[in-house]
């Protein structure tokens, strides 16, 4: 295991602690995130509610933990479904060249010319309040980046003497892919994915903030901010906490990606 730069170590620590919070929080809170006691609306943090209660008298701790877990998991799935096909298509384009490459580049360019948000908005209108359009839209808009990077790097690698030699010697595509191409691509793609994870967390919370979120009573960091915004004066902490968790998650991802991105 390579030693990590201090910044990346901090990023990893942030993500791991958020994951820990997401997994252990529900157990710590001890209640269902949907369980409400209207009489305890906006209760301040205390023995009953460690992080206070929201406007419907639900435990903020339980809700924040569920929301964090949801955000991280949805973001991870989104990134994986953008990165894996994007990388494979990029390698395919570099490998085959010709009309395959031309066609894929054309599709990628067309997707790039379409603001990603438009795609998500259209899909979210298709099934409001569902995870699927959110995930599908982000993945459909996100694969292009991996495609472009993988294609550029793979064409460089394919032109290297040892790769060319391996292909001439008759090593199968599997060998070339696994042994020669992917090891060269992975560090860069890893940075891209870490960064993409942050962007996905940000995008998911932002979209649910503008009302394309997920059905109640599901807790989501962006929609929690929207829900609690009217109570910002009476219970500023309740609005601050979900936004702070988004901030920490994104910061963690960006730090983990390190400076290689710029």
């Amino acid at each position: 295991m390579r030693t990590l730069a201090p910044g990346r170590r901090l990023g990893l620590l942030l993500i791991v602690s958020l994951l820990g919070f997401g997994l252990l929080g529900p157990w710590l809170a001890g209640t269902d995130p949907a369980h409400q006691i209207l009489a305890h609306s906006l209760a301040p943090p205390g023995a009953d509610y460690w992080l206070g209660a929201d406007h419907l008298g639900r435990s903020m701790l339980a809700r924040l933990a569920h929301a964090t877990r949801l955000s991280l998991m949805l973001a991870a799935v989104t990134v994986a479904s953008a990165a894996i096909p994007g990388t494979l298509l990029g390698i395919l384009a570099a490998w085959r060249g010709g009309w395959v490459e031309g066609g894929l580049v054309l599709v990628a360019d067309a997707v790039l010319a379409l603001p990603g948000l438009l795609l998500v908005l259209l899909l979210a209108a298709f099934a409001p309040g569902e995870f699927l359009p959110l995930y599908l839209g982000l993945a459909l808009a996100g694969w292009v980046e991996y495609f472009r990077v993988a294609r550029a790097m793979a064409s460089g690698l394919l032109a290297r003497p040892h790769v060319e030699a391996a292909r001439l010697l008759g090593f199968g595509p599997g060998y070339v892919l696994w042994r020669l191409l992917l090891p060269g691509l992975l560090p860069t793609l890893g940075v891209l994915a870490a960064f993409g994870l942050g962007s996905a967390v940000l995008a998911i919370s932002t979209l649910s903030f503008i009302g394309l979120g997920i059905h109640p009573p599901t807790a989501e960091l962006g929609s929690m901010t929207t829900e609690l915004l009217p109570y910002a004066y009476e219970a500023p902490l309740t609005v601050l906490m979900p936004a702070a968790l988004v901030f920490m998650a994104v910061l963690g991802c960006h730090l983990l990606a390190g400076r290689g991105r710029a």
Partner: peptide, 18 residues
């Protein structure tokens, strides 16, 4: 959302579509 929790108490599973 409040009604959802209140109906749950008498055993009714109400989902909310916004």
């Amino acid at each position: 959302t409040a009604l959802q929790a209140q109906f749950r108490e008498i055993g009714i599973d109400m989902s909310v579509v916004i």
